[in-house]
Design a protein around this nucleic acid. Structure first.
Lengths: 140, 140
DNA sequence: GCTATTTATTTAATATATTAATAATCTAAG
DNA sequence: CTTAGATTATTAATATATTAAATAAATAGC
């Protein structure tokens, strides 16, 4: 039978852990969790988003998102605004404070990302990302 | 600047989600979480393990493991036994019940794993795993 | 032999993941 | 227009993740 270590989910978990280790020191420095930073990055790029869209693109389930947003709101990183056309929906966007923090710190994330890519090898990284995208498309 | 979606940790997360979707229905059927199943698989292969070793090979931190083991013990899947040489250590192993459940259900996991591999392509899967292992070795 | 240090595990506190259920609103069939 | 069904966000309950601190037992150095 297939060995314990020959498990795609486990290998994906370990690879992700190793990748995140490149960024954990920075996250700790600014006191944001990995998920909080992911959400801030998404809102920086897409501007205002509805909760559902944000959950989708950040790969975070709605119930988790509700809590994360609540805390980011308390820390003055995110503002919520009810939609007028559809009163069920909530629009989320970065505060000026969050935008400022993002602009200041993101170059340092970029630098670490660059180093990680260099260490792994640019060619291998491209090939790796290609395979990751293919796997993400596989349906059971 | 690098786009939001061009993020290795995010791609790893999405690929892992897609991979896990192949097994979630089975896990639900036997009412075990992904982590519980990982631990059972490890103990099936390695026999009795100490808590630290189990945490290491399952990529689960000790504080999480304590809770998971407690619940698996209550469900009669795992038994703990204190080491005699070093009374700090705890030896963990599968109960007969767990071994029986594992032997019955694991062929169905194998079958789904086989289908996932076939769908993705055996060659690509080998290449993919190779890159995942390389990434897991990269140090920050 | 004793003490300081180290190591293995657990506890505590907070954040996130997962599933089910709820509340509010919208949409479409009748 | 009205109501059944669908959709969005939240709440609730339980499990796991993460970091720090506490506990207990082993080991090194004196």
């Amino acid at each position: 039978m297939r060995k314990f270590d020959d498990s795609l989910p486990l290998k994906l978990l370990k690879a992700r852990e190793a990748a995140l280790n490149h960024f954990r020191p920075l996250l700790k420095e600014i006191s944001l969790t990995e998920q909080q930073w992911r959400i801030i990055r998404a809102l920086n790029e897409f501007g205002a988003l509805e909760s559902k869209q944000l959950a989708e693109c950040c790969c975070i389930l709605s119930p988790s998102l509700t809590g994360i947003i609540t805390r980011l709101e308390q820390q003055n990183f995110i503002q919520r605004q009810k939609s007028n056309e559809d009163k069920r929906r909530v629009l989320l966007s970065l505060t000026d404070h969050a935008q400022k923090v993002f602009d200041e710190i993101s170059p340092r994330f970029e630098e670490r990302y660059r180093k990680m890519t260099e260490q792994f090898g640019q060619e291998k990284m491209d090939e790796f990302k290609e395979l990751l995208e293919l796997m993400a498309e596989v349906k059971p």
